[in-house]
Amino acid sequence: MSRSRKLLITDKLMRLLLVGAASTSVLVVCLIFLFLFREAGPFALNPGLGKLMDSQWIPVSFQEEHFGVGPLLSGSALVTALAMLVTVPISVLVSIYIAEIAHPTEREFLKPFIEILASIPSVVLGFFGLLVVAPLIKTIFGLSTGLTALTGALLLSLMAIPTIISLSEDALVSVPYALKNASLALGASHLQTIFRVTLPAALPGIVAAVMLGIGRVIGETMAVLMVTGNSAILTFSPLSSVRTMTATIAAEMGEVPFGSVHYQALFWIGIILLGITFFLNIVAQRVLKKYGMMK
């Protein structure tokens, strides 16, 4: 076989291999959707999707079982909203500091710490929550238990902050120097330039960062399972115990009889969760693409 022919075949093989590797992710996403629906499917016929609208989640009972996802949705929403209230201001301010104000040596010092924070396993953060944050919340607010929505939200903030900081920082750094120079040349101070030119110009990127942060927080399981108290109540009080959708699946999946109605209901929660994060991701990508910030 000639040398050039050999090269041609290797070339083709390599190409095939790479295309195969690249399409795996598409295939996996499709398969996940397929299997979720296959497992959850029968529930739609019996007892019917209306059961999911119930106001209570009591999957195991001697009387009537209730599969209302409302309390779980509200639990997830409450924890996520609280986490974002804490996360967004802190992350945006820190990213402004790192991108615009910090001295290069300070930046080199700060960034590794933020990256380490991003890489702490959520179970470990859960320990931290149980031992430090929960007792603190209990004493501060004089509660009977420190396992509340607020505790979960604080831990989730720790997880979301590094993600949002690095994405927001990217958005701020990619604002063209020409704009900052124009502002400075008009006699604007450094801070005026940041808040009136750089920040507005980077806003689409920051919005997308926050969306991705929300996606991460909603999908997080372990830490919230450990510190939010696990009671499926429909509530909007930050100091009450709640249970999120993710925690419900993680807590109940191990004990549920295979193929039962309860089992199928858990898969519906999974579908709802996947739908929410899917939607958030698409919106974030759209925002990034529209303003040309996709890399």
Partner: peptide
């Protein structure tokens, strides 16, 4: 420097209007 730059305006090589 703020007073100086009020007194001495600048126009750059590449036009750089703000996205406003």
């Amino acid at each position: 420097v703020v007073e100086l730059r009020k007194e001495v305006g600048m126009v750059f090589q590449k036009s750089n209007p703000f996205p406003k």
